[in-house]
Design a protein around this nucleic acid. Structure first.
Length: 920
RNA sequence: GGGAGCAUAGCUCAGUUGGUUUAGAGCAUCUGCCUUACAAGCAGAGGGUCCGCGGUUCGAACCCGUGUGCUCCCA
């Protein structure tokens, strides 16, 4: 069979994904194995996968594939989120392009468009997941607006309402004037900006306060002698909503104003001067305007002092009738105009810049308005405490822990009620109906609500044929009010409690998600799980960091630094993309995305491919030389390759054990690194070179099959990370009974090595180091590879054992003569002393010019003297340690033993170097 | 303003309970190689005030204190 020069992923990847699907490997149904369940963080239904998703999905796929190969019933549930605001905004935008205004549509018409949109674009993410190789159970695909899911959300809402945990009320909430909906606190992002503080004159009313309020038209023009105060504000466009001004009662500057009023500029509305400890004497002028409708602090002061609330803004952020002036103008346009007018009329004292924080809507990026509004809320305190407990007790483990535990704790301990109603159409409509008097009836259906209505009015059963005329609340629920049920309702755990599936799959094992949604989603899922299953939704949470570009900037469309996943897969292959993103992503740290790492992944594919090509070359020319089998009892040095098999088998075992432990700690990036190095360095650079027969020479059959076996093992280790190439290579190596995707890992045992095997491995390790020294020697001295070097080995090592290991087929190692003890130390000057551990070797330079020889000798003397000094210092420090009674008393036995060995080794080395110096 | 975390090679990061002689890896850099699987390759090398200062200890990259700088969360 002819294998291509380089590895070409495209066809191979598509072929295998189709094959896996056709075999149904990713399907899961409850059985008597232990389950390993992951629910995907559902991406927005109309979105595309970005690099953040790619990282998340890759991590999940690695974990689920590992579980599938380790005897678990692995179940990874895919799905998507209706993403209320985001999707509605997209649909509105799409309609606008078609020339359709949402306001001219009925709810039903709009939803029809929205569902069409969802049908059209909802599959994009799924096809991307397939391209990436995600082994999700496609039979379980769930959408947060599926019928059963919709019903579950309604059911939970009604249930929480009945428990008194959901309530309706007027509160100050965050209002998004672009999406024209309320938001939760979490949907507001604060940004530091340079704002302006305007200092505005408010004239003090001369009369005392018991005069009836006058309408502005009757006021006489202001005169220059009038007393005034100056108020600093960043929002001059809200002065029309002022209902008081306020100073600190201990502020002497304003104590004379007690009982007086001021006139609000431009509209000449009279408002009282009040006093409250809240006011900071040192901020601005020490006196504040109080605008209860447009600031949360003002609102609280307003409640305390019983002030009127004048809302001067419309829902879309334009000034309302209540503002009296600039009605219908946008708030920011109005601000400019009002500042201008204040300036003209002599009210503006000064403007100054200052740093402040402004809230922006997460979805529309518009400046959020604090607004008094009647909305639906969830009481969070009661739900929070079991959710807090589960994490504090370690029932749910967060990775990486230290970083997020504190954040999680703080949020839950200070949690505020959750505003869950949204003035949108795309989502679950709130199951509350109102009668003509505005009385509220919460039930899972209109029919049920009607019953409540009749009950309330003392009517046993409604007249036949009469349909109750209750009107349903127009709002929908926050997206997260549906996603917090995700780990339960993907198994119908809310709509059909205690069904077989939920009982089998819940709690899930790991949740893999971005740290940015710890409050939005993670904390709330735990709350919902504790409330409805009385059990945690998952055992471990793995937080991935944010994917940034290589300069550390966030990925964004504007910067154009957000690469297209499918293009990357086309260019490098899915395995390389997975490799690239995993190799540079320590858990929880931000990942600086660099295409260079994908290139590294592609090169790795190619390396594997070439190793395969090499082994395939040997396939037809195996021959039986000895009947070599592993494990051997009684180590003996065979003619070919045995030491390499022993050595590599041992490496494979060591690394497999290490990987297992890294998986347990979710240190996937480290696991991939050591597999990479095991394949590239240990397998390709050392092992294959050792067992490689000469050009067109036969290979011992047992070595060949063992090599194939090793390669299979390597492919299996790597499979969770790079599923496609590993499956392909696995099948190309030889006829296989099963696919790698479902091949089970064999149980790992720490190998019991006999002394002979241990010795063999040790000699191999020494030989590796000696080979490196020889190569270095050639490089540094510029000795061409066709020139023979003589090596003298002094001590216990067998020359023929070294010969086997060192004279491998690489050209630069062919020309070697390995001898025992150096015959005459005194006479041969052009030698290089090499110390490996306490083993001593001499590399012979051969004949060289006398002057050059002198230089070399001098340099060598210098080197050896330096090394000697270093060793002596070292010896002193070790001896000091060992002679210190407190050390000998306190330190552990192994540590002391180690120090003794260090001492002995150092003494030997000093002796060798001294000897060597004396002969030069 | 409150809280958390981080600082180790040019870059990105490992470094386990304080103890393995000279603190590791990948990438990048430099040098030499068309060696028969692989130039998407091979072989080798250089590169460190473990952020500064002080302390604890027989012993500190690691523990404690302090200063500086950066990041994130919350108000």
């Amino acid at each position: 069979m002819e294998l291509s020069k380089n590895y070409n992923p495209a066809d191979i990847e598509n072929k295998w994904y189709a094959h896996w699907l056709q075999k149904g490997y990713f399907k899961s149904t409850p059985d008597n194995r232990e389950p390993f369940t992951i629910v995907i963080p559902p991406p927005n239904v109309t979105g595309v996968l970005h690099m953040g998703h790619t990282l998340n999905e890759t991590v999940q796929d690695i974990l689920i594939r590992k579980a599938r190969m380790s005897g678990y019933n692995a179940c990874w549930v895919p799905g998507s989120d209706h993403a209320s605001i985001a999707t509605e905004a997209k649909v509105v935008g799409m309609l606008k392009e078609k020339g359709i205004d949402k306001n001219n549509l009925s709810r039903e018409e709009f939803l029809k468009y929205a569902f069409e949109w969802k049908e059209k674009y909802g599959d994009i993410i799924y096809s991307q997941l397939k391209k990436l190789g995600c082994s999700v159970d496609w039979n379980r695909t769930t959408f947060t607006m599926d019928d059963h899911y919709y019903n579950a959300v309604i059911k939970v809402f009604v249930d929480l309402y009945k428990k008194g945990l959901v309530y309706r009320g007027a509160r100050m909430i965050n209002w998004d004037p672009v999406a024209t909906t309320a938001l939760s606190d979490e949907e507001v992002e604060y940004k530091e900006i340079t704002g302006k503080l305007y200092y505005i004159k408010y004239f003090v009313k001369r009369e005392t306060s018991n005069v009836k309020e006058e309408s502005s038209s009757h006021l006489s023009p202001l005169t220059s002698g009038d007393e005034f105060i100056v108020i600093a504000t960043q929002r001059p466009e809200t002065i029309m909503g002022d209902t008081a001004v306020c100073a600190n009662p201990r502020d002497k500057r304003y104590s004379n104003l007690k009982g007086k009023s001021v006139l609000v500029p431009l509209i000449n509305k009279r408002v009282p001067i009040i006093f409250d400890e809240y006011v900071d004497k040192d901020f601005g002028t020490g006196i504040l305007k109080i605008t209860p409708a447009h600031d949360i602090n003002d609102y609280n002061i307003g409640l305390k002092h019983n002030l009127a609330i004048v809302d001067t803004l419309n829902e879309d952020g334009t000034l309302s009738e209540a503002a009296q002036i600039y009605v219908g103008e946008d708030r920011f346009v109005a601000r400019k105009k009002i500042v201008e007018e204040l300036k003209q009329k002599g009210h503006l004292v000064k403007e100054e810049e200052y740093q402040t924080r402004l809230g922006y809507s997460q979805r529309t990026n518009s400046v959020v308005e604090p607004k008094i509004s009647t909305q639906w809320f969830v009481k969070m305190k009661e739900l929070a405490s079991p959710a807090l407990q589960a994490v504090v007790d370690g029932e749910i483990k967060i990775h990486p822990g230290e970083k997020f535990l504190a954040t999680y704790k703080y949020w839950l301990e200070n949690v505020k009620d959750w505003c869950i109603s949204r003035q949108l159409w795309w989502g679950q409509q709130i199951p509350a109906w109102y009668d003509e008097e505005g009385n509220l009836f919460v039930a899972e259906s209109k029919e049920e609500a009607g019953k409540l209505y009749y009950e309330k009015n003392g009517i046993k059963s409604p007249p036949p044929g009469v349909v109750w005329r209750g009107l349903q609340d127009q709002d929908v629920l926050d997206t997260w009010f549906s996603s917090w049920l995700w780990p339960m309702e993907v198994f119908n755990g809310i709509s059909q409690p205690n069904n077989d599936e939920i009982n089998y799959y819940y709690p899930t094992q790991v949740l893999v998600t971005g740290q940015d949604i710890i409050f939005f989603w993670v904390a709330r899922m735990i709350m919902a799980g504790m409330e409805y299953k009385k059990e945690k939704p998952f055992s471990d949470v793995y937080f991935t960091g944010m994917v940034r570009d290589k300069q550390g900037r966030k990925m964004s469309k504007q910067l154009g630094n957000s690469p297209d996943l499918l293009e990357l897969i086309d260019k490098y292959g899915a395995d390389a993309v997975r490799f690239g993103i995993m190799i540079s992503s320590p858990a929880g740290n931000d990942l600086l995305f660099d295409e260079a790492s994908l290139e590294q992944g592609r090169n790795f594919n190619n390396k594997i491919w070439n190793a395969l090509k090499l082994i395939k070359l040997w396939e037809g020319r195996t021959k039986t030389v000895t009947s070599y089998q592993l494990p051997v009892t009684g180590y003996r040095e065979p003619a070919t390759g045995n030491f390499a098999l022993t050595w590599f088998e041992n490496r494979l075992n060591e690394v497999s054990i290490e990987i297992e432990s890294l998986y347990k700690q979710f240190r996937l990036s480290e696991a991939l690194k050591i597999i990479y190095s095991l394949i590239w360095d240990d397998f390709c650079s050392w092992y294959l070179e050792w067992v490689k027969p000469g050009f067109e020479q036969p290979i011992e059959e047992s070595v060949y099959y063992k090599t194939v076996y090793f390669f299979e093992q390597l492919m299996q280790l790597l499979h969770p990370f790079m599923p496609f190439i590993t499956e392909e290579v696995y099948h190309l190596l030889r006829e296989q009974k099963e696919d790698l995707t479902v091949k089970q890992f064999s149980k790992l045992e720490k190998p019991q090595l006999t002394k002979d095997l241990k010795d063999s491995i040790e000699v191999t390790e020494i030989s590796k180091q000696l080979i490196q020294k020889i190569r270095d020697f050639r490089n540094k001295k510029g000795i061409k590879k066709d020139k023979t070097i003589s090596i003298y080995s002094e001590g216990s090592l067998q020359v023929d054992e070294l010969n086997n290991r060192i004279k491998i087929v690489n050209a630069e190692l062919k020309k070697l003569n390995i001898h025992g003890d150096l015959p005459d130390k005194g006479k041969i000057l052009n030698i290089e002393l090499v110390l490996i551990g306490t083993y001593k070797f001499y590399l012979d330079l051969g004949n060289i010019e006398e002057t050059f020889q002198n230089i070399l000798i001098k340099r060598k003397q210098q080197e050896l003297t330096q090394e000697l000094a270093r060793l002596k210092d070292f010896l002193v420090s070790v001896e000091k340690k060992l002679s210190n009674e407190r050390f000998v008393q306190k330190a552990k036995a192994e540590v002391i033993e180690l120090e003794r060995k260090k001492k002995a080794d150092a003494e030997i080395k000093i002796k060798i170097i001294e000897e060597s110096l004396s002969t030069i």
